[in-house]
Design a protein around this nucleic acid. Structure first.
Length: 451
RNA sequence: GUGGUUGUAGCUCAGUUGGUUAGAGCGUCGGAUUGUGGUUCCGAAUGUCGGGGGUUCGAGUCCCCUCAUCCACCCCA
């Protein structure tokens, strides 16, 4: 044997391996996202993980610049994408002539941010983005909210709430107060209201934002309004009388709320929340965040908003848009913490033990017949003790095993075994597989309804 | 990036004021059972005590560094 020193197998901080029990639900979630996006007519695209540094740098914020993985290769400065929105802007500027507007795309892919890790925060994670570009229509605002709602519903999240705001509202108020140039600091301070409370935010508004005590009180007063979405909007309207931008923001929100109601979305699934501001600088209108009510501390699992002219840095063509992004890995981390994540250990429905070591070809035939009948079948590769093989199947969570030794195979039969209650039934399958498929279907349907 | 938490077998952890060959439960593997699993019984394997350095006659226990982890800030999916 070699005495060569072994290299310790390990992964970088914030980068993870995905075992089957996580990868199976992960793939299922991506599949669900694709299905929901497609149900609204979004089409898939993909872009490179690596972009010219000039494409990515300076587009998000100072913070995203700092977090970006960047390096030199072949004399070129390159960066790894830290979101899917900036690459979309570059993509749109390059291809919108061919694509035409409005253009609706979805993009499910990993992004990289070199920040410190925390629960639900990784350095490599998958985002499931969808965006509509080339229109300012309120219809696309409503649809974005609807997609977020449908998506979480389809994933099976029971308790979530989409928080909706419009940056124009706060900007309108700031305009009235003569504080428009402070909007970024104010929005960031307000974003912390729920987490840190009004006192801390009040202090930050004055210290960081440079507001007077009176101004800070007015801003906080606007944030503290109570009531349902409609009442809230009326109060905001009242507070913003005479401010065009603010009023426009309120009427946008009202249109979205009306649209959600018309689409039959239950009222506790969304809420107008003036404190939702979003950190990224490029949002200019409606913004969304989605909170899990059973685990608010993990942060938003699906966020987005409207941007006026995202591609403006790359093209002279005016391209407004709106979109949002599901944080797949954060959502999975949350579901895991809440014990809402099923962790299957197999992708197959039916288990076939290698019972008689001399009859490999018979098992190959049996498995093929069942696969052609629409089931995933796992055949055990070693003909060891039957009990051990059945234990393997049981540990993996199989519901059905097809047991056939020489007696059964000679007669063209097999035992269809229900692994949950140990019962089994002998079925003849060699000429007509239908009775076998029916017996499998019976067990599988009874085991899934009992879950 | 800043501050703090934790790091002992695959998993969950115990390990007394530093003292000889580091333990338990669960899991894994083998057997009891040469055509039928989840119970029971018997038996077995597995640790450079996260890694490196230091103090000491002696370190899993103390100190420093490092890596990882979780939490808070920051930021965000």
């Amino acid at each position: 044997m070699s005495t060569q020193q072994l290299i310790e197998p390990r992964t970088l901080k914030g980068f993870r391996d995905y075992l089957p029990e996580i990868m199976i639900p992960r793939e299922r979630l991506m599949e669900t996202a694709r299905r929901v996006y497609r149900s609204y007519g979004f089409s898939p695209i993909d872009t490179p993980a690596l972009e010219y540094l000039e494409i990515l740098a300076g587009k998000g914020s100072d913070e995203t610049d700092r977090q970006m993985y960047r390096f030199e290769h072949g004399g070129r400065q390159v960066g790894m994408r830290f979101d899917l929105t900036i690459p979309l802007a570059r993509f749109a500027a390059q291809h919108i002539g061919k694509l035409g507007t409005p253009f609706k795309r979805y993009h499910i892919a990993p992004v990289w941010r070199g920040e410190n890790t925390q629960a639900g925060r990784y350095r490599e994670f998958v985002q499931c983005d969808f965006d509509t570009i080339g229109t300012e229509s309120v219809a696309s605002d409503v649809e974005t909210a609807l997609v977020i709602h449908d998506l979480l519903k389809a994933i099976g999240i029971e308790r979530f709430q989409v928080r909706i705001n419009n940056r124009q509202i706060l900007n309108g108020l700031l305009e009235q107060l003569g504080l428009l140039d402070r909007s970024q600091a104010v929005l960031r301070a307000i974003d912390k209201l729920e987490k840190l409370g009004p006192d801390v935010v009040d202090e930050e508004l004055q210290r960081v934002g440079g507001l007077t005590a009176e101004q800070a009180t007015t801003v906080l007063g606007l944030c503290n309004m109570n009531g349902d979405s409609n009442e809230l909007l009326s109060q905001l309207e009242h507070a913003l009388v005479g401010n065009d931008s603010g009023m426009a923001g309120v009427s946008r929100l009202r249109a979205i709320i009306d649209g959600l109601q018309a689409a039959g979305v239950s009222e506790d699934r969304y809420r107008v929340d003036v404190t939702i501001a979003r950190g990224l600088d490029y949002y200019t209108g409606v913004v969304f965040e989605t909170l899990l009510q059973d685990l608010p501390s993990i942060g938003s699992v699906c966020s987005g908003g409207r941007y006026d002219n995202l591609a403006g840095l790359y093209t002279k063509q005016h391209l407004p848009g709106i979109g949002a992004s599901l944080g797949l890995d954060r959502l999975i981390a949350a579901m895991e913490q809440l014990n809402q994540l099923e962790k299957p250990k197999t992708t197959a429905d039916v288990f076939v033990p290698f019972f008689d070591a001399d009859r490999l070809n018979d098992y190959m035939k049996l498995c093929s017949v069942v696969r052609r009948g629409g089931y995933n079948v796992e055949f055990y590769p070693d003909s060891k003790k039957l009990g051990a093989q059945l234990k393997f199947a049981d540990d993996r969570g199989f519901a059905v095993a097809l047991v056939a030794g020489s007696d059964e195979l000679n007669a063209g039969n097999c035992q269809v075994k229900d692994l949950r209650n140990k019962s089994s039934e002998v079925v003849h399958w060699s000429e007509n597989p239908q009775p076998l498929l029916d017996a499998i279907a019976k067990i599988i349907s009874s085991s899934t309804t009992s879950k």
